[in-house]
Amino acid sequence: MTQSIRQMAALLGLALLPALISAGIQWDNLKAATEPGDEISYETALGFGEKILWIDARPSPSYAAGHIDGAISLNEDHWQELVAGFIDEWDDNRIIVVYCDGGGCDASHAVAKRLREEVGVKNVHVLKGGWKALPK
């Protein structure tokens, strides 16, 4: 048992050096990933007034069960079918706010990223706390 613990400590130590090198190389990537970045609160989003275009990144059944008034459904599962609907509604003056289920979901960030990279939308935000944070 003592030998096993010693071996485990050796493995913990062995992993340390490449991890430190990796941290040095990937520093910017790590920093960007762990900063809140483009998240905005519901109150901030409301401040955008009529310019706002809500994007519901939740799965289609969740959207069908209820969504923010005027929100467009756009999720990764049906991206190809849904993105055309978004492009019809979007123009450069609109401010896009994407939401998913809650604060822990990744879908809103993923959709926001794809809108920036694949559609070329610049003004994209993610709703902090998502659908669950909305006042009911």
Binding site: A23, Q26, N29, L30, K31, A33, T34, G103, G104, D106
Partner: peptide, 25 residues
Amino acid sequence: PGDFAKDILHYHLIPWPAAAAALAV
């Protein structure tokens, strides 16, 4: 490790981003 750090934070078990980044790397 950036994407992995995000995944760790989404579990809401580690409240400190720096700790999640260290763990991710």
